[in-house]
């Protein structure tokens, strides 16, 4: 099976570990992710102003590229890109007036009405492969690993674009169980990491990061699994600003890196050298990566 794939800017640089582990794992599961021939930055956040259409153009153009390349689905990994593309798509499906305005503005393109479906990678695992089948394909189950699934905000909110139904979500937990690990149930799984406030108001972001780390540790989680490069930066990398020297840092991994490990893929695809020192130290302690990393 072949599916269209939108990487977004961060996956081509800082989060290459997310991209490489994701593409290789999907390949091992029999699905080829084909990167769109042409794409642009989605804008990272969806425009919330009713009178601002110009910022909807960027994500819609990406969706048009996907359709014109013949895809009826486009897979996204970065949680922020997922949110921006999914919300823009919903607008193009449901708001006739704004859809017409945008289509008229992009007169060089064929009209777009939301024909493409925006899906997150976790949804592909659940809907195209299935948890039981995934569990069968696992070669190295991550037995005894206590993993806290960190959904963050943008995969499940607002509810209109959530990758999982209802108010209590299980998709990330189900994934963790399928790769043979224990999914930790904890209070801050969907608490915001502070997002873009890390630039303008880092103290405010730190407070919420501190709450997240404390809560995961209180439930004895070994590691945190996540899907968003901004969460990885705030909760993973900036954790060092918060912790006192005697407290153990909490390692963070992209969920696709855990998938690649469970599928028994070569270490190299996970690009662990891009992870935080605490994540690499944790793997070393488990003798899962060489000293070179």
């Amino acid at each position: 099976m072949k599916l269209g794939y939108y990487p977004g800017c961060t996956l081509k640089t800082k989060a290459k570990n997310l991209e490489d582990s994701a593409i290789e794992s999907m390949k091992a599961l029999g699905i080829e992710l084909i990167e769109l021939d042409r794409w642009n930055c989605c804008g990272a956040v969806y425009s919330l102003a009713d009178d601002d259409l110009v910022h909807i153009l960027a994500p819609v153009r990406d969706l048009i590229r996907a359709r014109d390349q013949g895809f009826d689905k486009v897979v996204v990994l970065c949680s922020m890109c997922y949110n921006t593309l999914a919300r823009a798509n919903l607008l193009m499906r449901e708001d006739e007036v704004k859809r017409d305005a945008l289509n008229n503005f992009m007169e060089e393109e064929n009209d777009y009405k939301g024909e493409v479906e925006v899906v997150h990678y976790l949804e592909v695992l659940r809907d195209e492969i299935g948890w039981d089948k995934l569990a069968e394909m696992v070669k190295n189950p991550l037995t005894d690993w206590k993993i806290a699934p960190y959904y963050g905000c943008t995969l499940t909110r607002p509810a209109t674009i959530s990758i999982d139904e209802g108010l209590s979500h299980t998709i990330f937990d189900d994934f963790i169980k399928a790769i043979g690990a224990e999914s930790v149930s904890w209070d801050e799984a969907e608490t915001c990491c502070g997002s873009y406030q890390i630039i303008a108001n880092p103290e405010a972001a730190s407070k919420t990061v501190s709450m997240i780390v404390t809560s995961a540790k209180a439930k004895a989680a070994d590691i945190l699994a996540l899907s968003c490069p901004l969460c990885e930066y705030n909760v993973g990398r900036r954790q060092a600003d918060l912790l006192s020297e005697d407290s153990d840092p909490l390692p963070t991994f992209y969920f696709t890196q855990l998938l690649a490990m469970a599928l028994g893929l070569d270490d190299k695809v996970s690009r662990m050298e891009l992870n935080t020192p605490q994540a690499r130290d944790w793997l070393k302690a488990k003798e899962l990566v060489s000293e070179a990393v």
Binding site: G8, C9, T10, T13, K14, A15, C41, G43, A44, V45, C78, M80, C81, S195, Y196, I198, I199, A200, P229, L230, E232, Y233, R237
Partner: peptide, 10 residues
Amino acid sequence: ELPQIAMVSS
């Protein structure tokens, strides 16, 4: 060190 999405969204 910042991921692009941090700067773009900020």
